[in-house]
């Protein structure tokens, strides 16, 4: 922090990643694998939101997947029942998630620690239950058809869209965490009372953390919806949240970039092992437990730190 040097390594690293992502479609011609990669970017983004909220602000929530669903369904249902243009629906979806995040944030001022995780897990199930039950409105378990972004069956534009969304979102979250917000989030995570006694407006920054995370979940959700062109309540089940949390943890919760990379790589790996059926999730679960027990900071975060010579 002393002499602020130019972060050469970091710039090289991120340029390499962006370049790799941009060139990948040249090497991968199969539209199946492009779809898989785009999906992996979605998981990378949601895993990063989880890292943002838990790893930095210290708020353990199971609600991310519900916020993804809320944004997706908001945009999808508006498309179904109104003639609103796509762009507006996307904004509405993200705003809706932010709004719900605001409410959860406000409630979490009362629910600390494990109570928050209990509340959010119940909340996530409630969202799924409602979508399932109100099938006359939401199409229920049969799924809701959603319009796509592009008038093409090619996966290439979707690939770039999801990749761009991931890169931009990570960059924005990264800047937020490098600003005084990140400092306050971590102070709150460490000791709310002390932070408050030192002038940090704990209420405001806690709610900020929730709203920001929720909005990025919303971003992931609307783009997922219009990329996948189909939404079903099953996607919002706790298993999906388990995958997301597992990806962030195996990557490294306390490092946004590592968590995102964990999401991308693991989702890609899971798809690659598709033939194993549910067994790959057994392996995933076992890996999660072993990493937790023996590599508390994840597998990628320590590597990242070594490479960069500093934490985020």
């Amino acid at each position: 922090m002393k002499a602020r040097h130019f972060p050469v390594r970091k710039i090289l690293f991120f340029s390499a990643i962006v370049l790799l992502g941009a060139l990948l479609p040249l090497a991968v011609s199969s539209s199946y694998w492009l779809h898989v990669l785009a999906m992996a970017y979605f998981y990378g983004l949601v895993a990063a939101t989880w890292s943002f909220l838990d790893g930095y602000a210290g708020q353990f929530s199971f609600g991310n997947i519900a916020l993804v669903m809320i944004a997706g369904y908001t945009s999808g249902l508006l498309g179904e029942y109104t003639g609103l243009p796509l762009l507006l629906r996307i904004v509405a979806g993200i705003a809706m998630s932010g709004l719900v995040g605001l409410v959860i944030g406000a409630l979490c001022l009362r629910f600390k620690g494990a109570y928050l995780s209990l509340f959010t897990i119940a909340f996530a199930e409630a969202v799924r239950l409602i979508i399932n039950t109100e099938h006359r409105f939401t199409r229920g378990p049969c799924g809701l058809r959603v319009d796509g972004f592009f008038d093409t069956t090619s996966q290439v534009p979707y690939y770039y869209l999801m990749f761009g969304i991931l890169v931009v979102s990570i960059f924005v979250m990264y800047r937020m965490l490098r600003s005084k917000w990140g400092l306050f989030f971590r102070a709150i995570r460490e000791d709310e009372d002390a932070a408050s006694a030192l002038g940090v407006n704990v209420v405001r920054y806690k709610i900020t953390a929730f709203v920001v995370t929720s909005m990025f979940c919303g971003v992931a959700g609307v783009f997922y919806a219009h990329f996948n062109r189909m939404l079903a309540p099953n996607f919002g089940q706790i298993t999906t949240m388990g995958l997301i949390i597992g990806m962030a943890v195996i990557g490294g919760v306390e490092n946004l970039v590592a968590a995102a990379m964990g999401g991308v790589l693991l989702q890609f790996g899971l798809e690659g092992l598709r033939d194993l059926g549910a067994w790959r999730l057994v392996v995933f679960g076992a890996l999660l437990m072993i990493v937790l027990r023996f590599a508390r900071n994840g597998l990628l975060a320590p590597l990242y730190r070594k490479l960069m010579g500093e934490e985020l």
């Binding site: 400092l183 306050f184 460490e190 000791d191 002390a194 932070a195 002038g199």
Partner: peptide, 25 residues
């Protein structure tokens, strides 16, 4: 301003970051 009898430093933040919190706040 106040300090705590039982110390409440921000444990998983660097010493400098600990000092930056009140200044930025």
């Amino acid at each position: 301003g106040r300090t705590f009898q039982v110390t409440r430093v921000f444990r998983r933040m660097s010493v400098l970051q600990n000092l930056m919190v009140p200044a930025m706040a």
